[in-house]
Design a binder for these strands. Sequence first.
DNA 1: GTAGGTATACCGTACAGTGAGTGTACAAAG
DNA 2: CTTTGTACACTCACTGTACGGTATACCTAC
Lengths: 195, 195
Amino acid sequence: MPRSGAKTRDTIIVAANTLFYRFGIKATSLDAIAERAGVTKRTVYYHFRSKDDLIAEYLATRDQPNLEAFQAWFEQARGTLPERVRAIFDGVAETIGHARWRGCGFQRTVGELANKPGHPAFKVASAHKKRVESWLAYEFQQRGVPHPEDIACQVTLLLEGAFAAMLMHRDRRYVTQAGNAAACIVGHSLSGRSR
Amino acid sequence: MPRSGAKTRDTIIVAANTLFYRFGIKATSLDAIAERAGVTKRTVYYHFRSKDDLIAEYLATRDQPNLEAFQAWFEQARGTLPERVRAIFDGVAETIGHARWRGCGFQRTVGELANKPGHPAFKVASAHKKRVESWLAYEFQQRGVPHPEDIACQVTLLLEGAFAAMLMHRDRRYVTQAGNAAACIVGHSLSGRSR
DNA sequence: GTAGGTATACCGTACAGTGAGTGTACAAAG
DNA sequence: CTTTGTACACTCACTGTACGGTATACCTAC
């Protein structure tokens, strides 16, 4: 009996989300996703043209929540601008404590698909990171940071570095250091009034 | 006719290096490696216990050359310490220009194996990154940088970020920005005489 | 020095499992 | 009665790993 369409589709995406993130793209089969979603592989292929399609969808679902998490950490923080930037890294450090944390899904997906630069997932991942960067640039510009785009870019670079280093070393101090560096850069740009 | 043993082994590693780096771990089969090395799969299994073994060896071969490249860029650079640190990023930016560049092999491998923290490749990757970090810390300490370990850590974080961002956006400006940030941090630590 | 044995290095083949993707049938909804 | 959504059963190529066999190199006893 056909369920309400969109519901099945969402169930599949949720299953894909879990498995792709936990085990990686290549290591996750559509069989496994279908089983976890409680549907047949044929149904998966009804809702998605191909595995590549599903990969892109998987990343797309992570875009908004990720960005909102960053924004929440920043907005809820008190203190000077560098301190509030550091709060983003503190927030990241917390999520990393989760047993199921496996690095940045965007980074890992792009890493696996490195040989397929035209893959749809690439665009989704790149767009997500640029959204984060733009948001930061906007916040910095609002607060009179000179060269806000440059500083935002540098902060996102530290975020990327923190994700990568954390996955590699499983040592939370790397996030702390990244937060320190970001705070340093933002603070320096504010006091210097010119990069 | 048995060849000189070590030579065959090296041939296999070279083939694995190329394919693992280009296509990723999961996407590269032992068949493909054996074929490229001009041997049979049986021979691969004679020299390596398993694919996981070969993965670790693949990363191990990238350790020394990578470190030496960083050192060369730093040593050959002229100018102030921040400028010489920036030279490392300039060096990275150049390699990225290569058509075959596919990000940091360590980062991508660890990303694929994120669900297997006990994998031997993890140790190799982590050790490599720590070697780079230690070397930087040593250079900084020699030049009177306060908290050299902290600054070295932050610079390596920017390196990681540069690799990740470059792979995602294919835009060399990210490396430049990372270099700017690193130079800023090093310069700031030198002038401030305390982080 | 040479017969016979042992270790080394390599190949061909087999196998059991899994991967993405498809053809077709069938039930519900409109 | 046509469209939509789901299931079952299937193909076919590929993948990691194991087994058995073979040719050369090396070593030791006589």
